[in-house]
Simulated assay, not measured.
Amino acid sequence: MLHVSALGWTLTILVILGLLALDLIIGTLKPHAVHFKEAVAWSVFYIAIAVVFGVVFASISGWEFGTQYFAGYLVEKSLSVDNLFVFVIIMSTFAVPEAHQQRVLTFGIVLALAFRVVFIILGATLLNLFSFMFLVFGLLLIYTAVQLYRHRDEDPDVGDNALVRATRRLVPVTDEYRDGKLFSRDDGRRVATPLFVVLIAIGSTDLLFALDSIPAVFGVTEETYIVFTANAFALLGLRALFFLVKGLLDRLVYLSTGLAIILAFIGVKLALHWAHVDISESVWEISTNLSLVVIAVVLTVTTVASLVAVRRDPSKKAHAGSIRARREGPERPDDAS
C-alpha cells in the first residue's frame, strides 16, 4: 500500500495549485485568440510536467506505483480528449468569441478538478467501506461503454441540458457577449450574458464526465494519491490542448469506439477484482502492466485507424459520442443560443 506523508500531499497540492493559477492567469488576465505555436508550447510543457512527475514519483515509490500512475494518466488523458469534443460543441453552439474561449476553458478545468476531488474522496471512501463497490463501479463502466458504443456517431445535445434550460428560464440572458462579462445591466436590471450560460453548460458536462472518469481510474489503481495526481495532471493541459487539437478532432472518427473499449475493459477488470476478493482468490485478475499495454494499444490503433479512414474518405467526421440517444424534434426557442 502506498504511503504518502502529509508533507508529500502538501507539496503536490501546492504544485498543482501553482500550475492551475498559472493557467488561470494566462486564460483570464489577457484574453486573446491562441495560435498554433503557443498551443504547442503549452501542451508540451504540461505533458512534460506530467511525465517528469511520474518518473520522480516512480523513483521514490517504486515502479509498481509509477506504472499505475502512467496507466491512470493515459485513461484520464484519453477521456479528457473526449471532453474536449464536447467543449468544442458547446463553444460552437453558443458562438463563443475566440478571445473569450480561454477564460471559459480555464474555468471549465477548475470546475472539472473540483468535481473530481469530490468524487475521488467519495469513491475512495465507498471502496474502503464496501468491497462490492468494485462490482458496482465495474458494471457502471460497462453500461457506459455499451451506451457510448451504441451512440458513437452522435453528439451530446447541449440544448437538452437541464441546467442550461433552467438557467434560461430563471435568469434573463442577453443576446450578445459583453467584453467577457458574466453579468451586465439592461435598463437597471441585472442580466446574465451568454458566457454565464456557457459556464453552466461546461460545469454540468464536467460533472457527468467526473461520474465516469473516477470509476475508470479506480479500475487502474486503488491509491487515492495516484487517482488525484493522474486526474490533476491530465486536466491541467486541457486549455492548451483544446487550441492545439480542435482542428484535428474531426479526424478522430474512431475515438468514441476506442473509449468504449477502454471503459469496458476497465469495467471487466473491476468486476474480476471484486470476484477475486469476495468470491475466490482463484479468479484471475488483470494486472496494471497489462492494463497499461491494452490502453496504450487501443489508443494507438484508434488514432491510426481514424487517420487512415479520413484519408480514404475525407467526408468522414468524428463525433463525441453520447450515453443516451439524441432527442428528436424541433429545437425549442429557449434552447437556442
Rank of each mutant, 00 (worst) to 15 (best):
I214P: 14
N161A: 10
G219K: 10
L84P: 03
L74M: 13
L7I: 08
F243T: 01
A145T: 09
I262Q: 04
L135N: 03
G258V: 07
W284Q: 14
S287T: 15
K269S: 14
V217E: 13
F45D: 04
L252M: 13
V164K: 01
P314Q: 07
L307F: 14
E223W: 09
Q102W: 04
H276S: 11
F119K: 02
F36I: 15
L17C: 14
P156R: 07
F85T: 02
G108Y: 06
N231D: 02
I200P: 01
W274A: 12
A234I: 13
E176V: 09
F107G: 05
V81L: 15
A309Q: 10
I202G: 06
A275V: 00
T224E: 03
P215M: 00
E223G: 10
V301R: 02
A296G: 08
I120D: 05
F243P: 01
W9D: 10
K246W: 01
L263Q: 01
A210F: 00
A112L: 14
G108V: 12
F196V: 10
A232M: 14
G138W: 11
L235V: 11
R189T: 13
I202F: 10
A271G: 11
R116N: 13
S5I: 05
L238E: 09
T302L: 00
S92V: 10
Y46A: 08
Q147L: 08
F107E: 05
E98D: 13
L207D: 00
A309M: 03
G72S: 09
L148G: 00
V34N: 12
T193V: 01
A264W: 09
K246T: 12
F228R: 05
V146W: 13
V308C: 05
A336V: 04
A318E: 00
S5N: 06
G203C: 09
V110G: 02
A112V: 01
D334N: 02
R326C: 04
L211S: 03
E38A: 15
Y225P: 04
V55K: 06
D186F: 05
I109Y: 02
L199Y: 01
A192Q: 03
V298E: 08
L163E: 11
I262T: 07
V191Y: 07
S306M: 05
D82G: 07
R150S: 02
E285S: 12
R190P: 03
V191S: 00
T303G: 02
V294E: 00
R324W: 15
R152S: 14
V217D: 10
F57C: 08
D153T: 15
H100G: 11
I295C: 09
Y177W: 07
W63T: 11
F132N: 03
S322T: 15
